[in-house]
């Protein structure tokens, strides 16, 4: 089939404003991913097209972008899912919103990682290493509580789909809350007070308006809004 891609382009060295580039590809298959098509454009038509990707298999989280208006990983989005009409498909690709564009589809992720670092996303404990020097065990019930949020790959699809974050980038954002949730609800971790202090701040969880864009955007199917709700509840009830 034939695919027409409309891609938001911007080169800070030559362009004053972003512009739309149009590219046509032949012999596109329903099973191709959007990343495959972007590769073909870069390799066959315009080598200056700039994007970030690494694993190409939905693991590394480097290629989140706005595809037909919705955030997704280009490597996980099949052409067949984007509304093929007859023997044609039209696809629009833009960088994710809310973060400064560096070039074409690449945004500056530093503000996003600043929020990530703010929640102390690492294991904190004063307990000594277990006598056998091996892992710190916990029950299956306790492990289950944060299972969902261990799946995050920090792709920023959630945070950059959030209208609260678009409006005010001081909001810590869903991804940082998901990462905090992973440790706050881990019975072996002892850093919950510090983390919840950050999240209980004005630009923490209260900026969440339960819009659910994050849950829709997450390529790992994490129940992001639910995780945020659990954190809000932990703060109000004083129990984790």
């Amino acid at each position: 089939m034939q695919a027409t891609l409309r891609i938001r382009r911007f080169n800070p060295e030559t362009d004053k404003k972003p512009w739309w580039g149009e590219y046509t590809l032949e012999n596109v298959h329903r099973t191709d991913t959007v990343l495959d098509l972007l590769h073909r454009i870069k390799w066959e038509q315009d080598g200056t097209l700039t994007l970030r990707r690494s694993c190409a298999h939905g693991v590394c989280g480097s290629d989140a972008m706005r595809i037909n208006g919705a955030n997704a990983l280009a490597c996980k989005t099949l052409v067949s899912r984007l509304g093929v009409k007859g023997n044609e498909i039209k696809i629009q690709v833009e960088p994710i919103l809310g973060l400064p564009v560096e070039k074409d589809l690449i945004v500056d992720m530093e503000p996003f990682f600043d929020h990530y670092r703010a929640v102390l996303p690492y294991f904190i404990t004063d307990q000594p290493v277990p006598a056998d020097g091996r892992e710190r065990l916990q029950s299956q019930v306790d492990r289950e509580r944060f299972d969902d949020t261990t799946k995050c790959i920090l792709c920023a699809a959630c945070t950059s789909s959030c209208p609260s974050f678009w409006a005010d980038d001081r909001y810590i954002g869903p991804a940082a809350i998901v990462q905090a949730h992973r440790f706050v609800f881990d019975s072996r971790d002892e850093g919950m007070n510090e983390r919840l202090d950050v999240l209980a701040d004005t630009f923490g969880v209260w900026k969440c308006r339960t819009i659910f864009n994050c849950t829709n955007a997450c390529p790992r199917d994490i129940q992001v809004t639910e995780a945020i709700a659990e954190v809000k509840q932990a703060i109000t009830s004083g129990k984790v």
């Binding site: 029950s139 019930v141 306790d142 919950m192 919840l196």
Partner: peptide
């Protein structure tokens, strides 16, 4: 393992 969920108090 134990079926009881560990619940801890936090002071925010």
């Amino acid at each position: 393992t134990s079926d009881r969920m560990t619940v801890r108090r936090v002071q925010i």
